[in-house]
């Protein structure tokens, strides 16, 4: 119940702080881009757009949200509220994943104007976004400022993005398959009819990274909240 209250609060926060507007604006730009894209490349272009923006953009936005909350001193309150760290992390990750899934569906529905597997697309983007958001939150918890966040986020985000882009452009290697980015692209690609049926492994990778991320964030986030204000404990 408390998780849903937190989730509701986070969604309201996104609306109030303009995240929905921003996502919709970005989605509109991509839709225009897809309209201008030659027909034979539209599906592939949409898969890359959805992979790198709606699905992965949250990992940057969640860092901004964490830093904004920190600036407003709210972490001190979360530290003494009944909200469990796991509920806090999930609420943040899931609320942003909602916008990602909504944005992805809009891009495909308006930009491609073809019937696709919307259920799988929504589930894929939602799941992938949750994983990337959790990773983004963990990275943000180590950041001292927005600039520092952008700096420390680049290596891990690159590491997550490059394998999926290599796979999308035809590279095949077993190591690429253990990346959640690759798993996400395979799911998006299949839902758009441009990739093979995703095997159970693809879902397994996403679930594994979500579980590992949640476990680590559950330890890291309370510690990060506690060390704020230059007090190390």
């Amino acid at each position: 119940m408390r998780f849903f209250s937190a989730l509701k609060g986070d969604i309201r926060y996104h609306i109030k702080y303009g995240f929905y507007f921003l996502y919709m604006f970005i989605s509109a730009l991509y839709i225009i881009g897809l309209f201008m894209c030659p027909y034979e490349y539209k599906g592939f272009a949409a898969s890359i757009i959805i992979l790198t923006d709606p699905a992965m953009l949250g990992s940057f936005f969640i860092g901004g949200i964490w830093l904004l909350e920190r600036q407003e001193g709210l972490h001190r309150f979360w530290g003494i509220s009944p909200l469990k760290p796991l509920e806090y992390v999930l609420s943040k990750a899931v609320s942003l994943a909602f916008i990602s899934a909504l944005s992805a569906v809009l891009i495909v529905a308006i930009g491609l104007q073809e019937t696709h597997n919307y259920l799988l697309l929504t589930a894929s983007v939602f799941m992938g976004s949750v994983v990337f958001n959790i990773i983004g939150l963990i990275i943000a918890s180590y950041a001292r400022s927005v600039n520092h966040y952008m700096l420390i986020a680049i290596p891990p985000v690159t590491l997550l993005t490059v394998p999926s882009l290599l796979t999308a452009f035809g590279s095949i290697h077993p190591l690429l398959e253990i990346s959640p980015g690759t798993a996400l692209w395979r799911m998006i690609g299949y839902s758009l009819g441009i990739a093979d049926t995703p095997v159970l492994w693809v879902w397994g990778v996403q679930v594994l990274f979500a579980a590992l991320g949640l476990y680590y964030a559950n330890c890291r986030i309370p510690a990060a909240m506690q060390t704020e204000g230059n007090q190390k404990a």
Binding site: K16, G73, F77
Partner: peptide, 14 residues
């Protein structure tokens, strides 16, 4: 428990 902080912490846009 209820905690009143020395430095107030709220969502500024709410």
């Amino acid at each position: 428990i209820g905690v009143d902080f020395e430095f107030p912490n709220f969502y500024g846009k709410f």
